[in-house]
Design a protein around this nucleic acid. Structure first.
Length: 887
RNA sequence: GGUCUAUUAGCUCAGUUGGGAGAGCGACAGGGUGACAACCUGUAGGUCAUUGGUUCAAGUCCAAUAUAGGCCACCA
């Protein structure tokens, strides 16, 4: 006999099955006009990265969706790839070089450094995608892409040129975010703002004419060397006379004007603001309005420059200390105030970002943002959960131009060429032979590279071949859904959307399915510095990939964070184990001693009540689960599969069918085998997206459709079950319900009376309505409640005193236990039951007495309520009568 | 300052158009029963944060409040 191994050990088959799928081409997606496409493009993990729990969650969700749609008959493409991660990789490679050679990256020079970077990429870049296979990701590896591969590079250059020619990319000397450690510019999205403990210093700027002057507050005194004016609100009476005059910048002795501008808020501070356009974005704008000079007083490593006089060369914070001390000594410091100050920090190295004047490339955002805004406002693109559309829109409503140049080497080099002679800028996909303006041949390419996110923005279509008009692009674009964490909506989602509209004329996907973070057991963010991260590979090693996947996508709700709790993954593993054992049971009963399949047969007229019941349960399960999947409610879908398998199939159906399998009615055995197999197969299908490995392994041990072979015969290619609306086995379901009610009641009595589980019992069932039902299901009651004999009595029968009783809907059950009945305990038990029923009756009657309810509630609900009332009243009457007879 | 989320059993969390409160883990009691001790059977445990409102009906919708957290923001 061939069967599953005695114990569930995922290591025995997970890798083997993955290899069979991959080599068999099970993940390959083809352009097939007869099928509908389903496309997910994987958010490319950084090549510097290692697989962490966040990836595991993100990818599991994508894989569940992909496998499900594939089974539904879509041509399902899940396209994998990785991101070059400009800053992160450059820092990593530079550090490695420094460790190995002791030399700074600049000593190697651009060419040499890039050689090392590519070598690093070749060695480690594939690491993470290999780890994805452990998770069971069913992505089409043949289409694996890299943001810096040739076609992606082409796409980046093409996009840049297109935008430049439209005038939507420009170069300008503007105030940008500068990281003094990474020594590169950053976009607004790459700066993290935090409130930190700081101070306001109030300094007096004396009037040039010898008057008192004006006092201003600042949190950044070291930028005073760049002060160019003092601004006050035009309506501010206090300073009316000073507007148009000048004040003296203390110690520096430079004369600066007092100007009137709407920007200062008279209510705040002293109502007067120092204007330092080179070091503050607001001041920069004030400066633009008044056409003021710009003085930058810092170097690109955040040390002070010559404008800081004797402080030149000092770090910005050292300078601050010394400068404040000097001002205080000179009597200009009026007062200080403790204050929480917002500080911007680099999202990579966490240094304080310095606003600096710099010559950079920008993308003009106003026009690009419009279709991206419309996409969500019009409902073309939907966020799941919906609330994230607000986050997205708010960001777009006041989006500012995007600084895209980075002073790095690793990345897409900006396709702009400068004429060394005349300074002409040429933007082209290759180095021009000569300058189109002066004709000379001395041109130099821009030294900078593009923001990593500039290339990620094209990912939904650059991976499909854009700018070429490929069949893939035509078929698989737009993608159906993007699965991602809420943390990169700004970095990535927004930019993909406007790029998608610009390049493809349509949104990149229909849905953005947003998930939360995986936190540690205490709810903290998993991070390297805390050392609290859980390695998914270790988890898989311990519990199996299926358990990890199931744990990650059940018990969660879309968009909310979840915690990694070892007990939860253990529970998922136990579920796999349960399925494993139940399947062993089924497989065992389908074979003869010699391993040949025993006959099975579908014969509707021969179906027993429990067969019809489980078929109906399965059918309704299919409907529910499919609906939940459509709504991205994977947690609810997964939860239901769990219940179907464990509660319905294992706890009830298998137990009910056992007697038949061990009996000798051959015709009936065929039917039982059929249902046992059919339902298990359906459940395996429903579970497969969540737990692909174990379900595939079990599938291989079940009888197969002989028309299919190879990968096509595997579960991964099986059809998703279809709900059959015409199925109606309610009569059988009701009978099974009665059986289950009686079984539970007897089990309860057994436990309460402390009768040994092994002790056979006889029971009396008193009923008028369930007589035939009980006759039909009596074997189940006998088997599952360990009952020898069921005595059926009519409604006028008086239950014996020396019995323990229970009341269910439509029947009373008595278990005579002369040696065990504790009359006091029995009365106590029944009294509790009575109280419970009384409160039910009261609740229902109150509801029915409410005219509002009977008049306004839907008729079927009122009817249901009436029926309940009758039921509870009858049960209550039975309990009361029983109590009377005991007293 | 704006905005979003969370508050449900001892713990971690589900609860989908409003219609009798659920799971897993843990606790307690019992059990080697023809796949399963990674199991089975039974039991206990909750004014669904608070206060109002809408409704015949609110864990679910609305408004405030409290507590915790997230995101955004140019307050000198």
């Amino acid at each position: 006999m061939k069967n599953l191994a005695k114990t569930y050990n995922p290591k025995d088959f997970e890798d083997r099955i993955y290899e069979t799928w991959e080599s068999g081409g099970a993940f390959d997606a083809e352009v097939d006009k007869d099928k509908k496409p389903f496309t997910i493009v994987m958010p490319p993990p950084n090549i510097t990265g290692q697989l962490h729990m966040g990836h595991a969650l993100d990818q599991t969700l994508q894989d569940v969706l992909t496998r499900w749609r594939r089974m539904q008959g879509y041509s399902a493409l899940w396209l994998p790839g990785s991101d070059h991660a400009s800053i992160a990789t450059e820092v990593k490679v530079a550090n490695e070089l420094r460790e190995k050679t002791g030399k700074d990256k600049r000593e190697f020079g651009r060419e040499e450094f890039l050689k090392h970077a590519w070598a690093w990429k070749e060695e480690y870049g594939g690491r993470i995608t290999k780890q994805c296979r452990k998770l069971g990701d069913s992505c089409d590896w043949k289409r694996e892409r890299f943001t810096m591969d040739e076609t992606c590079n082409k796409a980046v250059v093409k996009f840049f040129i297109n935008l430049y020619e439209k005038g939507w990319i420009y170069k300008g000397n503007r105030l940008i975010n500068w990281c003094p450690d990474c020594k590169t510019s950053l976009s607004d999205a790459e700066v993290e703002h935090e409130d930190e403990h700081g101070k306001y210093w109030y300094f007096r700027y004396p009037a040039a004419d010898g008057g008192e002057g004006i006092t201003v507050a600042t949190s950044r005194p070291e930028t005073m060397f760049g002060d160019i004016a003092i601004a006050v609100h035009p309506s501010d009476e206090r300073y009316k006379d000073l507007v148009g005059k000048t004040v003296i910048l203390p110690i520096v002795e430079r004369e600066i004007p007092v100007i009137a501008d709407e920007y200062p808020d008279p209510e705040k501070g002293t109502g007067a603001v120092k204007i330092t356009p080179a070091h503050d974005p607001n001041d920069f704008e004030v400066g633009q309005r008044h056409d003021l000079e710009i003085i930058s007083c810092m170097n690109d490593d955040a040390t002070m420059n010559e404008y800081a006089g004797k402080y030149e060369g000092m770090d910005r914070y050292e300078c601050r200390k010394a400068w404040v001390a000097d001002l205080d000594a000179a009597g200009f410091l009026v007062k200080t105030e403790d204050m929480e100050i917002p500080v911007g920090r680099c999202y990579r190295c966490h240094s304080a970002v310095e606003p600096m004047m710099s010559d950079q490339w920008f993308v003009k955002m106003d026009e690009l943002a419009k279709p991206a805004i419309n996409a969500v406002e019009s409902g073309r693109m939907k966020f799941v959960p919906e609330r994230f559309s607000k986050v997205y829109l708010n960001w777009l409503y006041d989006i500012r131009d995007w600084c895209i140049s980075r002073q790095l080497w690793w990345g897409h080099r900006i396709p702009a060429y400068y004429c060394d002679e005349c300074g002409e800028i040429v933007v082209a996909d290759h180095m021009p032979d000569k300058c189109p303006k002066c004709g000379c041949t001395h041109l130099t390419q821009d030294e900078d590279v593009l923001d990593t996110w500039f290339s990620s923005a094209l990912w939904p279509f650059s991976t499909l071949g854009w700018p070429e008009k490929t069949a893939d692009l035509d078929y698989f674009y737009p993608n159906n859904v993007l699965v991602t964490g809420y943390d990169i909506i700004f970095f990535w989602v927004v930019r993909m959307v406007f790029s998608g509209y610009e390049c493809m004329g349509d949104a990149p996907y229909d849905y953005v399915f947003v998930h939360g973070l995986v936190r540690d057991e205490q709810g903290r963010k998993m991070s390297k510095s805390l050392g609290n991260g859980v390695d998914p590979l270790e988890s898989i090693d311990q519990y199996g990939a299926d358990a990890l996947r199931f744990m990650l996508c059940t018990g969660i709700s879309p968009g909310n964070d979840t915690r990694y709790i070892p007990k939860r993954i253990e529970a998922a593993r136990n579920f796999a184990n349960k399925l494993w054992n139940a399947s062993r049971f089924t497989i065992m009963n389908l074979q003869a001693e010699d391993g040949s399949w025993l006959p099975m047969e579908f014969n509707e007229s021969a179906l027993k009540d429990e067969d019809k019941w489980i078929l109906q349960v399965a059918n309704e399960g299919v409907k529910y689960i499919t609906e939940q999947m459509e709504k991205f409610e994977l947690g609810l879908a997964g939860q239901r599969v769990y219940e179907l398998i464990w509660d319905y199939y294992c706890d009830w159906y298998i137990e009910m069918v056992k007697g038949r399998l061990y009996g000798d009615d051959e015709a009936d055995k065929k039917v039982a085998r059929y249902v046992l197999t059919k339902v298990l197969k359906d459940f395996l299908k429903l579970l497969h997206p969540f737990m692909p490995f174990i379900t595939e392994e079990i599938w291989g041990f079940l009888p197969q459709d002989s028309s299919k072979s190879g990968v096509d015969a595997m579960l991964i290619k099986a059809d998703w079950p279809v709900y059959e609306p015409s199925m109606n086995y309610s009569d059988s379901a009701k009978k099974i319900q009665v059986a289950m009610d009686i079984i539970k009641a007897v089990r309860n009595i057994r436990a309460e009376a402390e009768a040994a589980p092994s002790r056979k019992l006889n029971i009396i069932v008193k009923t008028d309505v369930h007589t035939s039902a009980i006759e039909a299901v009596s074997s189940h009651i006998k088997n599952l409640a360990n009952v020898t004999n069921i005595e059926l009595k009519g409604g006028d029968f008086a239950l014996p005193d020396d019995a323990m009783t229970a009341v269910i809907d439509g029947a009373e059950i008595a278990v005579p236990l002369d040696d065990l009945v504790d009359k006091e305990a029995e009365i106590e038990r029944l009294t509790k039951e009575k109280a419970k029923l009384e409160s039910e009756v009261e609740r229902v009657e109150k509801k029915l007495a409410n005219k509002g309810f009977t008049d306004k509630a839907p008729a079927h609900l009122v009817e249901e309520e009436r029926a309940k009332g009758e039921k509870y009243k009858e049960m209550l009457a039975n309990v009361v009568a029983r109590l009377e007879s005991l007293k």
